[in-house]
């Protein structure tokens, strides 16, 4: 195998960006048992906020990251309060239909608003070499930011009161209620945070890849696999699985074939479904 360090680095960068989308999706599933099909679209919307901030105002994506996250936080929280809250506790199919519909609406109106044109931000494209690993600065910055943001999420969940409320609601809603936690607020907050993290991922993607209205669904497909791999509802599991996914893509392409590589996560998924049905980090539903 040539350049294992480079492959490792590539896998980690991609994994870090996937993780930003995946932790949010898992968090949302955890607190409200809703699979949010529109989650990838939040990444897409965030990406466009960053893009237009760059195109119109000349703002660096590193600066527009914060407004993009703030806007998507409010959008996500509002959407949860007004629409998604209504299907909490209803059968999974109801929420799937609802969020699928939302996704279609967001995606279609984005096509009208932004056109299907591919776009991207050319920023920090110069490559740098370190320990024989070459990578453009935007990838490195993206990686570091993604780590900082997921780190911040973990600290938030672990140490702050609202974070604990989210964790409690996710782990056992009845007990959370019995503790006097306002689970509705926890859900709204978690949904907003998930949307904001997705927006951050979108911003980074606009810098390292390219963006288009349909991108949300493609990232959703990947992150959904990641979330199931990590254990539905487990944020730590999603993080680990995202990196596993990135590394499988990277090493699989180099060592096997680009045609086989995309199937590897599914092979892993099937293996895990057989040997550990609740996912890498999941607590099985029966335990809840």
């Amino acid at each position: 195998m040539d350049h294992p360090l480079q492959l490792l680095a590539n896998g980690l960068v991609v994994g870090a960006i996937y993780s930003l989308v995946a932790v949010g999706l898992s968090l949302v599933f955890g607190v409200m048992r809703v699979i949010n099909i529109a989650h990838g679209d939040f990444a897409m919307l965030g990406a466009y906020v960053a893009f237009f901030a760059w195109d119109w105002l000349g703002l660096s994506p590193l600066v527009s990251l914060l407004p993009a996250m703030a806007i998507l936080f409010l959008f996500g929280a509002g959407l949860q309060r007004l629409v998604i809250e209504r299907v909490v506790g209803r059968p999974l199919l109801a929420s799937l239909m609802l969020t699928f519909g939302l996704s279609l609406i967001i995606w279609n109106s984005s096509q009208v608003a932004f056109t299907t044109k591919l776009r991207g931000i050319s920023y920090l494209t110069e490559p740098v070499t370190f320990l024989g690993v070459t990578m453009s600065q935007s990838y490195i910055v993206g990686f570091v930011l993604a780590l900082i943001l997921t780190g911040a999420l973990f600290a938030f969940l672990k140490f702050t009161a609202p974070g604990k409320a989210i964790r409690a609601t996710s782990q056992n809603q009845d007990v959370a209620l019995a503790c006097g936690i306002d689970v509705r607020r926890a859900r709204t907050l978690a949904f907003g945070i998930g949307a904001a993290l997705a927006a951050a991922a979108g911003t980074l993607i606009s810098m390292t890849g390219f963006i288009y209205p349909y991108m949300g669904f493609e990232y959703l497909a990947k992150t959904f696999t990641i979330v199931v791999l990590g254990g539905l509802g487990s944020v730590a599991g999603a993080l680990v699985a995202a990196f596993a996914y990135g590394l499988l893509e990277s090493f699989g392409t180099a060592m096997l074939s680009p045609r086989i590589a995309p199937a590897l996560p599914f092979v892993l998924l099937i293996a895990i479904m057989i040997f550990r049905p609740s996912g890498l980090f999941g607590t099985s539903v029966a335990d809840r």
Partner: peptide, 20 residues
């Protein structure tokens, strides 16, 4: 001489191979 699947979003691993 290699084909890659339609739905990929990251070309880094393939270009890496080209480089190698």
């Amino acid at each position: 001489d290699t084909a890659y699947p339609v739905k990929i979003t990251d070309w880094t691993p393939i270009v890496q191979q080209v480089m190698n």
